[in-house]
Design a protein around this nucleic acid. Sequence first.
DNA 1: TATCGCCTTCTACATCTGTAGAAGGAGTGG
DNA 2: CCACTCCTTCTACAGATGTAGAAGGCGATA
Lengths: 212, 212
Amino acid sequence: MPIDRLAALTDAAIDVLAELGMRGLTHRAVDARAGLPQGTTSAYFRTRKTLIEAVVRRLADLDRADLQAGGLPADAASPTVTLDDIDSVAAGIAAVLDRWMSTARNRTLARYACLLEATHHPELRTILRHGDASRAQARLMLAAAGARHPEQAGNHLVACIDGLVFDRLAGAGARTAPPAGTAASRADLAIAVATLLRAFAGPSSNARQPTA
Amino acid sequence: MPIDRLAALTDAAIDVLAELGMRGLTHRAVDARAGLPQGTTSAYFRTRKTLIEAVVRRLADLDRADLQAGGLPADAASPTVTLDDIDSVAAGIAAVLDRWMSTARNRTLARYACLLEATHHPELRTILRHGDASRAQARLMLAAAGARHPEQAGNHLVACIDGLVFDRLAGAGARTAPPAGTAASRADLAIAVATLLRAFAGPSSNARQPTA
DNA sequence: TATCGCCTTCTACATCTGTAGAAGGAGTGG
DNA sequence: CCACTCCTTCTACAGATGTAGAAGGCGATA
């Protein structure tokens, strides 16, 4: 099983997923998209489930590589990023997000499709731990900044940032927000992210703790 | 075309969509779910596209009804809600969100599936203006609270709140956050929403404006 | 009551999809 | 040169799916 063949197939599958949706993800569609003869995908992934699992695994791998390339340690063992200059941190995060929405648009859309799929296929959830590394980073950042409940605040922060991305890709933001890949998009995102960082790092996020 | 029959079919379709995903949404599956004889859905919605459009329309209708029942004016002509007591406003919003994730879970999941679908079917986007009313409300609230760029801040706010919901339904929050429908869930959501309201209403969200 | 129109239900069928296995071919070791 | 193995490609086929139209039933109207 040549590894480049597998990568080509799973990458094609990710594109198909992004462009045709979960419904369009078929063995034959992946063959066509990859420019490989019919039957190839079926030979490598005998069942559809294995195909989807391969996609999910590949998404996780690509995300990990992405994080490392962006300078953030994926294992979160070393807290490199601090909140000394919130605006520059926000700008960095905004740049990553903007790439997710432009260059890596298909990958991001495919990930959302898989997240939705994991809702009724729990076995995907163990692989698709999207954002786990980001979450760990966020926790460390917020803890270092003095947040009183960094775990909770980190979860909220990452969920909100994800919401910004989803909104621009699939929600109303697709109409209203500046188009991805532009400086305006990054600026708008940076404003939102900076606001979030300040909010969740500051004392206002510690007003109360859930009582139950 | 009896209206109750149509409603039964589209409601069943929403359930199918939430439980089986876009791939499982077939005429026959809707028949089965609705407990109606095979061929019924096919008779009412000759093509699959009309079925999906009916689902999207129904989702929009249900959302509108939901907002009105919740006391928020759907047309946003009258700004009833102010930010005088942020915590109580946040608690109210949290209650609505928690209902979306428990009682109305299927509907919410179906909406996300349709949003993703609208990515490659633009004609759905005109119908599925999810959150438009909420956005208008948010703008008014933030403007009344003195935000400098209420339009932008409102968009960010609604996107973030949606992110909180999506995270709990399909993301990591499904594992980490307190289960929907409980007081703990509402409390946790209320903390996050209050933080967001304070952040986007306050001056910190007005640090800069996109330059382009 | 007979006829008509409409709503419902059933059936047909071409196409698509998932999955398995056969056929072909290139490289390797004897 | 032959046999063997593995990878690739092709073909088969059962079942699902989208869609159209026929058959059946039921109330209204003359």
